[in-house]
Design a protein around this nucleic acid. Sequence first.
DNA 1: CTTCAGATGCTCT
DNA 2: GAGCATCTGAAGA
Length: 205
Amino acid sequence: MTDRLDRAFFDRDTVTVARELPGRYLVRIWDGRPLVGQITETEAYIGRCDKACHAYGYRRTPRTETLFAPPGTVYIYLIYGMYHCLNLVTEGEGEPAAVLIRGVRPVYNLDIIAENRHHCKWDALTPARRAHLTDGPGKLCRAFGLTRAQNGISLLGDELFVCSSLPRLGLEREDVTGRVQAGERIGIDYAQEAVHFPWRFWLTF
DNA sequence: CTTCAGATGCTCT
DNA sequence: GAGCATCTGAAGA
C-alpha cells in the first residue's frame, strides 16, 4: 500500500509540516497516470503572525478563502500573471496557514513531466536542463499540470496527494531529517520582520 | 557562472 | 492603479 499523508499529518504546526515534507513524494494523477516528484524545497506561511502570508491577520478575501479550509486542502494561486504556486493547507480549521511547495525532483513518468515543461522527451534533456526542470514553484506546477482548476481540492482525493513511500513504483521511504536545511524565505521583501523567519526548508545532498 | 529586463493578468486598495 | 510567495532568454564576465 501507499502510505499517503492524511489530514492528521497536515493538522499540525505549519513549520513542522514544512520541515517534514522534503523527501516525501508528490503524486499527481495526470490522464490516469501518476506523475511523481520527490519534494526538495518548502516554505511555511502562517496567517496568524506572518506578514508574508496572504491571510496575514486572518485577512479573509475571495482568494484567501481556501487557506481557511481544512488541513489537507490544496491552495493554488496565480502569480505574476502567468505562473501558479502550489500550497498545502495546514494547522487547525479556521487557522489560515499552508506550506508552499517550492521544488521537487522528478522521479516517475519523466517523459510526461518533460513534455509538460519543454515539449520533449526526458532523454532529450541535458543534465543541466534536467536539474532545473521542477526546481521552482511555477516550474513544478507547469510540469505537473497544476492550475487554479485544482484550487480547493483535497489531498485525500485521487487527483493529487503526498506519500512517504510508493513501493509499487520502487520508491521506498527515506529518512532525510539529517539532510534538511533551514533558511530565510524567497521573494517576500515586503514582509518586514517576517523576511528573516527561517521558514524555508530544503534537501541537501 | 552572473545580472537584468520583460512578460502578463489577477487581486485588493 | 500598484504590486505580486516567478521564469526565461540574452548578454556579459
